[in-house]
Design a protein around this nucleic acid. Structure first.
Lengths: 152, 152
DNA sequence: CTATCGAATGTGATATTGTAACTCGTTCGA
DNA sequence: TCGAACGAGTTACAATATCACATTCGATAG
C-alpha cells in the first residue's frame, strides 16, 4: 500500500505551517499572501483565482485584482503550499505543506467537492510508464471526475 | 503489461473510421464536422477550439465561429472521436476511435507536442483507488507534463 | 540619515477560453 | 404539407489568464 501518515494541519496551525514553509524557501510571508492563503484554505471546494480575489477583497475591504492573486497562487503552487486542479481551472490549499506528493484529486461533478488521495505506488507507476515511453515526467496530473460518496 | 494492439488510422483512413463511428452512434457526418475533424487531425499538437476555428475558416474560406467548433468538439469528445487535454485546454483527435480507453497524455512543456499511451492496468489502478475512497470514477484524467524524448 | 535597489503589489488593458440565447434553414417523418 | 428535430450562424457575454508598466516599501550600502 502507498498509505502513510501525514501531519495534517488546519486553521491557525495550517497558516503557521504555510508561513514557515514559505520562509524556509527564502520567500516573504506578507499580509497579502497570508490573506490569499487563508481565503483559499477556507473554501471547501477548489477555488478559482477570481473566487479568491473576491474573498480577499472582502476580507481586506479593498479591491484586489485577479492579477495579484494569480501571482501569489503561482508562488504557492511552486512552493507546494497549494495545488492546481487542472480539470477545474481552480486551486486548493495543501493541508500538509512540506510533504511532497503527486496527488490524486477526486472531483465530484455533482457537488464540486474535491478530496485528494496520495498513492505513491500509483503515481510512480505513471511516472514509470512515461519514462518507458522516453518521456521525462515533471508533473503528473492525476484527477478523477465522478461522483462522491455523499452524492450517491 | 497493459499493452495491446490497436488498429491505428491516419489520413483518409482515419477520416473514414471517424465518420463510421459517428454514424454508428446515430449522428450525422456533416461537411462541417468533417472539416473540424480534419483540421484537428492535422495538428501535431493539442489544438484549442480557437486554433481549430481559424484552421476551418481558412479551409472553408468563410468565417467559422469558435462557438460552432465547441459544439462539434463536445460531440466528438462524447463519441470518443477526440479527447480533451485538460491541462492544456485543448483537444486532440483520437487515432483509434471505436476503442475506448482512459488514456494517458504525455505533454512536453518545451515543444508542446503530445503523445498518448494506454495502460489499462494503471488506469484501472486509479479507478480502484478512487473506489476505495468511496468515489465513483466516471472519467479519470491522467496527464503528465514534462519533457519529451526529442527535447532532451 | 539618505540614496537606491529590488521585491511585492497595484492598475488597467488585453488575450484566451468557454457559454447562453436566439435565429434560420433543412430534413424527415407523421 | 405540416411541424418537430437537428445543424449551424450570429451576437453577446462570462470566466479564466497574462502583460506592461507604475507605485510602494523595506533592506541596506554609503
Amino acid at each position: 500500500m502507498g498509505a502513510h501518515h501525514h501531519h495534517l494541519h488546519q486553521g491557525e496551525s495550517l497558516r503557521e505551517a504555510a508561513a514557515q514553509q514559505l520562509k524556509a524557501r527564502g520567500e516573504q510571508w506578507t499580509e497579502m499572501r497570508a490573506a490569499v492563503f487563508e481565503a483559499l484554505a477556507e473554501f471547501d471546494k477548489p477555488a478559482s483565482a477570481y473566487d479568491i480575489a473576491e474573498a480577499v477583497s472582502k476580507r481586506l475591504d479593498r479591491r484586489i485584482a485577479a492579477n495579484s492573486v494569480y501571482r501569489i497562487l503561482d508562488l504557492f503552487v511552486t512552493t507546494n503550499l497549494a495545488m492546481r486542479v487542472e480539470s477545474a481551472n481552480a486551486y486548493v490549499a495543501n493541508a500538509h505543506p512540506g510533504c511532497l506528493h503527486d496527488c490524486i484529486f477526486l472531483i465530484c461533478d455533482n457537488c464540486g467537492s474535491t478530496s485528494h488521495i496520495d498513492d505513491d505506488k500509483l503515481s510512480s507507476g505513471v511516472r514509470d510508464a512515461a519514462a518507458a515511453a522516453g518521456f521525462e515526467a515533471v508533473r503528473p496530473v492525476i484527477e478523477v471526475r465522478g461522483k462522491c460518496g455523499t452524492c450517491d
